[in-house]
Amino acid sequence: MEIGLNHLLGVSALLLIIGLMGVICRRNIIMILLGLEIMLAAGNLAFVAFARANGNLAGQIMVFFVMIVAAAEVTVGLAIAVVLARKIRSVNADEMRQLKW
């Protein structure tokens, strides 16, 4: 069976759901960041799949940009996680609600 666009998009959608569930359900912020990365990877996969289907490089170029942004984001995110771990001795997202009204 030839692996076509639909298969790739299906995997991408699956990855997106998995990542989203991770973001919503896990309490550990590192895990939440991880979920975010998975969602970004799902996006990347969709881009690459379309690039292949259309036979041009535009989607692949976009993937590089997304990767760069993802790297930057995870850097900032992990740094915040480290600071939070130091300040409140926890990485539990439920305990981080000091900024509400």
Binding site: C25, I32, R97, K100
Partner: peptide, 11 residues
């Protein structure tokens, strides 16, 4: 509505 819980916002 403003719970302060990140994940409820995500939801």
């Amino acid at each position: 509505l403003q719970t302060g819980q990140l994940q409820s916002y995500a939801l």
